[in-house]
Simulated scan of single mutants.
Amino acid sequence: MARRIPLTPEDLADALAELPDWAGDVHGIHRRTKGIDFRTAAAHVLALAAVADDLDHHPDVEISYGNLTVHLLTHAVDAVTGLDVEFARRADELLAAQLDEDA
């Protein structure tokens, strides 16, 4: 999957099937983690910063009461690309590891 080429709706549907906590369409995908305390959400954002720098791809992140939401879109092509899917996979791995540590 080319990193910065827009995904077709079919390719995105296949990718989202492997990322059950993510939703969206070819115009952007997002994941909302509910019931997360502020400190854990902030730690996750810091961990995501390393992924963002590694991939040279930066998400929109929102922390609100009990929620952390990550939005992904490759702005250069105004669509979801393989880069967004790669970021989503890595974000899921990080959050799972952090929640396991906190348990």
Rank of each mutant, 00 (worst) to 15 (best):
D92R: 01
T69G: 02
A2V: 08
A49D: 13
A88K: 00
Q98D: 14
A96F: 02
T33F: 10
E86Y: 08
D102N: 13
V70H: 01
V85K: 02
L94S: 11
K34T: 07
Q98M: 14
D53S: 08
D84M: 03
D92Q: 05
A96M: 05
E18T: 14
G28I: 02
P59C: 08
F38I: 15
H75L: 12
L7T: 01
D56E: 13
A97K: 12
V80H: 10
V77H: 02
D53L: 11
G24L: 08
I63P: 00
R90E: 04
I29V: 14
L48H: 04
R3G: 05
A88G: 03
A2Q: 12
T40E: 04
R4C: 04
L83Y: 11
L99F: 13
D78N: 10
L72G: 02
I5F: 02
D102A: 14
R32L: 12
P20C: 03
V77R: 03
V77E: 07
F38E: 06
V80C: 04
V61E: 03
L73G: 07
R32K: 12
I29N: 03
A96T: 14
M1A: 12
V85T: 12
I5Y: 00
L72Q: 04
T8L: 10
H30M: 09
F38R: 12
G82R: 03
N67Y: 02
A103N: 06
T33S: 10
T69C: 03
W22R: 07
L46E: 03
H75W: 14
D60L: 09
T40D: 15
G82F: 06
L12F: 02
F87P: 06
T40F: 04
G82W: 02
R90V: 08
M1L: 13
T8Y: 04
D78I: 10
K34W: 03
H44K: 10
D100N: 11
A96H: 08
L46D: 09
H30V: 06
I5N: 00
E18I: 11
I63H: 05
L16F: 05
I29H: 10
A15D: 01
A103F: 06
A47C: 15
A103T: 14
A41I: 15
A41Y: 01
Q98R: 11
H58G: 05
L48K: 00
A23R: 12
L19G: 06
A88M: 05
V45R: 01
D78W: 05
A79P: 00
E10F: 14
R39D: 15
H44I: 15
D100I: 15
F38P: 09
V80F: 04
A41N: 00
A50I: 09
H71P: 00
Q98P: 00
H27K: 15
A50S: 07
V77L: 04
A43D: 15
H75V: 11
A91N: 02
L72C: 06
V85W: 07
A50R: 10
A49K: 08
T81G: 02
T33H: 06
P20W: 06
R31A: 11
A76Y: 06
H30Y: 03
A79H: 01
R90H: 01
R90M: 05
A13P: 05
I63L: 02
D37K: 09
D84G: 11
S64E: 14
